[in-house]
Computed example of a mutant assay.
Amino acid sequence: MKSKFFNIFSRYPIYFIVGGFVTLVTIVLRDFIGRFLYGSAWEYVMSIAIVYVVGTILSYFLQSRFTFKDNKKKTRSFKYKFSYYTVVQLLGMGVTIVFSLLIRYLLFPITILAQFRDTIAFIIASLIASIVTYGISKVYIFKEISSKK
């Protein structure tokens, strides 16, 4: 059981690095968009949704190339993988929004950090979502399929 867990998460460090790059892009983009939106909870959620669209597309291509080495093994079709990857990223967005709001409003009412609380909450929530989305992607979307004879 232990070795199966470690086998599943063996490429998580690469996923984390690639995802970290994508997350950095989305954090900068969310912060940029956030400067045009004026801080209500709805506008905050909208900024996360916008960057998730950009992040999902960038993430799919980078993760499939570097983490899951999609070009080296026989996997499902692009349509299948991209569709399900998008669904998993939407799940990740939901996890990010829920945890982001919880951290922003419940765990981060400190006024000294109020200027940075949106960004900090988004970073922490994104880390939680990355663990969830990696596991699902590795086990269900990018798993190698056997050739049909």
Rank of each mutant, 00 (worst) to 15 (best):
M1N: 12
K2C: 02
K2W: 03
K4D: 03
K4T: 04
F5A: 11
I8H: 03
F9W: 08
P13H: 06
I14G: 00
Y15A: 10
V18D: 00
V18E: 01
G19F: 01
G20M: 11
F21M: 09
F21N: 02
T23K: 01
L24A: 15
T26Y: 06
T26N: 12
T26V: 05
I27G: 03
V28M: 10
R30C: 11
R30S: 15
F32P: 02
L37Y: 14
G39H: 13
G39V: 04
A41I: 14
A41L: 14
Y44W: 10
M46K: 07
S47M: 14
S47T: 12
I48S: 09
A49E: 13
A49M: 15
I50Y: 05
I50M: 08
I50T: 00
V54L: 15
I57Y: 13
I57D: 10
L58D: 01
S59F: 06
Y60D: 04
F61S: 06
L62N: 01
L62Y: 04
R65F: 13
F66M: 09
F66K: 02
T67F: 04
D70S: 14
N71Q: 09
K72L: 05
K72M: 02
K72A: 03
K74G: 02
S77T: 14
F78Y: 11
Y80R: 07
Y80S: 09
K81H: 10
K81N: 12
K81A: 13
Y84D: 05
Y84V: 06
Y85K: 03
T86I: 00
V88W: 05
V88A: 06
L90S: 01
L90E: 00
M93F: 14
G94V: 01
V95R: 02
V95Q: 03
T96D: 06
T96F: 02
T96M: 07
T96S: 11
V98G: 13
F99P: 10
S100T: 12
L101H: 06
L102W: 13
L106H: 11
L106G: 13
P109T: 14
T111E: 15
I112G: 13
A114N: 13
D118A: 08
T119E: 08
F122L: 07
I123N: 11
I123F: 13
I123E: 08
I124R: 00
I124E: 05
A125E: 01
A125V: 00
S126M: 04
S126N: 05
A129W: 01
V132W: 02
T133M: 02
G135M: 03
I136P: 07
V139H: 05
I141G: 05
I141Y: 08
F142P: 00
E144S: 14
E144H: 13
E144V: 15
S146P: 09
S147A: 11
S147M: 08
K149W: 12
